[in-house]
Simulated scan of single mutants.
Amino acid sequence: MKKQTIKSITRNLLYRFRQIKTERFYLLIMRKNGIANKKVVGEKEWVEKWSQFGLKAKPTQYRVFSHYIGNDINIVPEDICHDFIETILNPMRFRGYYADKNVFDKLFPESYMPRTVLRKMNGTYYDEAYRPIEMTESVFFQILNQSKIDKIVIKPSVGGMSGHDVRLFCKDRDASQSWRDSSTKTLLDLSYIEHYYGSNMIIQEVVQQSDYISMFNSSSINTLRLSVYRSVSDNECYVTGAIMRIGGKGSVVDNAHAGGCFVGIHPDGSFCHEVCNQYGQQQSTFNDIDFTNNYQYPNWYKVIEFAKSVGKHVLHHRLLALDIVLDKDNHPHLIEFNIEGYASWLFQYTVGTAFGDFTNEILRYCLKKQKEIEEVICL
């Protein structure tokens, strides 16, 4: 059997495995939210539209998301988005470099990112200017103290997802070599870094977030997630969806998988009147905040322009999921961007379809480029 045939069979098996896994998850969503698993208006047309890649679209996701945003043929199926659309718009051959958070400071102007204190790349320590460091315990604390920073966040620079292993440390006022985890009070030292973060990590200053955004939960940085698409027709960047994550009381991370919720944001910056968890369960009150009140994201149109400018710096990829924080002066800063695991569901539980007015353009382009899909399996 030829190598290409083996790859094709393997790839198709992976597609179907992921589709089965996705199907099971959305059946769970249906049960949790009392959504009937039966045919709905527009389903036939939706299945036809999204089955053009050769993998028949399962109607389960259409039934789920139409429950939230109405019967819209442009609802994006998560599995087809992952296996076909993301793979074409964000080619795999370029992902490794862009997925490393330690290269972000090379991609963007200095003001875009929180200040980096220390980084470790492929086993070597570097300072904020990428100069290599012979690391010892004393050098480690010297770098932290010379930064004149009182709060730092430590996270994996490669492979971290959903807020896993993101830790916040605060400096003790009375001890130069005493930094404690804000949640567990564990002391920080070099062996801690080596043990928990291995060969790739980044230490950054904690941005003092906007008082307005802090109101929703003061213990977490409540990040804004924006979908940015760089059009194949004019190479301009467009924001196609927006939600804000909100951590649970006392939580350092805001991710929905870690007990947080998220709220949809309309194109004019106004908040939806309900928050949502990862299972699509909605409520109008979270952290004692009543979302039936009219909330508006600060400095909204500057944030949108900032997001578009980020997209213009990532030249190899066209579909980005940005995580943005607003500082105390309501200026936006990029925490990170994602080029895989786009999470179309975040937007489709809340304000509308993931790609909005660009759905047909994206679909046409990806169908045209389908033969260029890179193999997931290397043989």
Rank of each mutant, 00 (worst) to 15 (best):
S191T: 12
N287M: 06
V228P: 05
Y126Q: 05
E134Q: 14
D254M: 08
M30T: 10
E375K: 06
E305C: 03
W345M: 11
G260L: 03
P59E: 02
K302P: 06
Q146V: 01
C378D: 15
S227L: 07
C81V: 14
F140W: 06
T292P: 05
Q209N: 01
R24F: 12
T184K: 08
V325D: 05
V303T: 12
T240K: 08
H164C: 14
L187T: 14
D127G: 08
L322M: 01
I243P: 05
T116F: 05
G356Q: 04
D79H: 14
Q348E: 08
V253W: 00
I143G: 07
I80Q: 06
L168Y: 14
L89C: 09
L107S: 02
D189V: 08
Y342Q: 14
M92S: 12
I339W: 11
P132V: 01
K39S: 09
D174P: 01
H266K: 14
Q19M: 08
N200L: 03
A57V: 07
F108N: 03
T124L: 13
S219T: 13
Y192M: 09
R93T: 11
K3T: 11
P267T: 08
T124Y: 12
S219M: 05
D329C: 12
Y125C: 05
G123T: 00
S344M: 05
N33L: 04
Y197F: 06
E372N: 09
A175R: 04
T116W: 01
E305A: 07
A129G: 13
K155M: 06
S309E: 11
T136Y: 05
D290I: 11
E43K: 03
K21W: 12
L55P: 04
S219G: 04
V139S: 01
S214M: 07
G70K: 03
W50Y: 05
V376A: 13
K302W: 07
N90R: 00
V47H: 07
N145E: 05
Y192P: 08
L27D: 14
I69Q: 03
D211F: 05
P267K: 03
H273F: 01
Y130F: 09
T116K: 08
S231A: 07
N255V: 01
F94K: 06
N217F: 00
P156V: 00
I373V: 02
E361S: 08
S220E: 03
L168I: 12
K2F: 13
V314T: 02
I265M: 10
Y238A: 05
V228I: 02
I73P: 02
L367I: 07
R364D: 15
C276I: 09
G269K: 00
V103R: 13
S284R: 13
H333Y: 12
M215Y: 08
E134N: 14
R18L: 03
K148L: 12
Y197W: 03
G70T: 01
N222H: 04
Q348V: 09
F337S: 11
I9A: 06
Q204A: 07
V239N: 08
D172R: 09
F337E: 10
E43M: 01
D72T: 04
E45S: 06
W300F: 15
G352V: 07
E340Q: 14
F347P: 02
H257M: 13
R119I: 09
F291N: 06
I246H: 02
F355W: 12
S191C: 10
R364E: 15
S220L: 07
G269D: 04
G260M: 04
A175G: 07
K368M: 15
N294L: 13
S182M: 10
V252Q: 11
E340V: 10
